[in-house]
């Protein structure tokens, strides 16, 4: 399963090479051409097919290859490693996790002082990243320096697997789910030029999408995402943001984008006509590649649509396979109608 391979692959922002290689392999037989740009985006192009192909129409689909992770900043005198988060990580999820560092996948653990030794007040204290270290079992600073370099990226050592009846768990489902969906979407033909862009550096400011869109100048853009989910039971009747199992989530607005209403309506109508379950992302939170693409050059009407994903930006996340498949189905049905907007 491609999603499994992608989830297990390692690609923190700025270092997406391993993920990119998998994706090149997956798409090369289905697209007319592809290239890798300066920031490391993989840009695949499918030329318009069909008699009524409208030439000037270019549609960009973006899914980001990068994941959040850690970067090694310093070797302590005793061989422990200091690090900074790459992308938005809540430091509270880091304690007692395992990581793999650098090209050689040096294993490490983020250890914490045992509960036995904690003062009562310490137990209530949140540990920020600058108070944490990675232990690779090095004997000394020199030993550690020989194994790990400053600037090396670390990823969570999480293995993808199924969970429950319909769900899968793994790291980096945000946004490898979008990448896997995009690969499926690229296997069909469309009556316009379709650019499937696997973007770099989304988690540090949607930087890849920005320069890719500059080069492509799309007419419309869709970001395919793994998005926030807050569907745990709550006392108050308030928004769950998205629900796992409720179908692909359409963004009408987030912190980076006011989705183009025509594209939102197109997705909603397509879902209804084809009886594909869908939901809105019921919060104005977060940002995606679409928010950067929409601002490129003279502007690009854009929308984001996502697989609801629990526990994103942590070592392990969870999504429903049905939601994932419905995202693909929805996009495949909706895309041909873009030409009629």
């Amino acid at each position: 399963m491609l999603l499994e391979k992608l989830s297990n692959a390692r690609g923190v922002s700025g270092n997406e090479g391993e993920v990119r290689e998998i994706l090149i392999d997956a798409v090369k037989d289905h697209v007319d051409e592809y290239r890798v740009d300066t920031l490391g985006n993989l840009i695949a192009r499918k030329k318009a097919k069909g008699a009524r192909a409208r030439k000037p129409l270019r549609v960009m689909l973006a899914a980001h290859m990068d994941e959040i992770g850690l970067m090694i900043t310093h070797h302590d005198s005793n061989g422990y490693l200091r690090f900074d988060p790459v992308g938005g990580i809540d430091a509270r999820v880091l304690l007692s996790k395992t990581v793999l560092i650098g090209k050689d996948k040096v294993p490490g653990v983020i250890g914490v002082k045992p509960i036995h030794l904690l003062k009562a007040s310490e137990r209530q204290q949140v540990l920020e990243t600058d108070a944490l270290t990675i232990d690779i079992g090095a004997k000394s600073k020199e030993d550690a320096q020989g194994l790990v370099k400053i600037g090396d990226y670390a990823t969570f050592a999480t293995t993808f697997s199924s969970i429950g009846t319909d769900c899968v768990k793994g790291k980096a489902l945000d946004d490898r789910a979008g990448c896997a969906a995009l690969v499926e979407i690229l296997k069909r033909d469309y009556p316009f030029d379709l650019y499937g862009v696997f973007t770099a550096q989304e988690e540090v400011g949607a930087r890849g999408a920005r320069v890719a869109a500059y080069a492509i100048e799309p007419t419309y853009a869709f970001a395919l995402e793994g998005t926030v989910c807050d569907d745990s039971p709550k006392k108050k009747d308030v928004s769950p943001v998205t629900r796992v199992g409720g179908g692909p989530a359409i963004t009408f607005a987030d912190n980076s984008l006011l989705s183009d209403r025509r594209l939102v309506d197109l997705l909603v109508e397509t879902a209804r006509e084809n009886k594909i379950p869908y939901q809105f992302k019921q919060a104005v939170a977060g940002g995606t590649d679409a928010g950067r693409i929409t601002l490129v050059k003279e502007g690009v009407p854009s929308v984001a649509v996502a697989v609801p994903t629990r526990y994103i930006h942590s070592p392990v996340s969870l999504l429903s396979k049905r939601d994932f498949e419905n995202l693909i189905a929805l996009m495949i049905k909706a895309l041909p109608k873009v030409a009629k907007i």
Partner: peptide, 16 residues
């Protein structure tokens, strides 16, 4: 110097 994200310098603006 390992810079995990925005460097806050002109390099950050020029790259994109």
């Amino acid at each position: 110097l390992a810079e995990a994200g925005a460097t806050g310098t002109d390099a950050w603006a020029m790259q994109v």
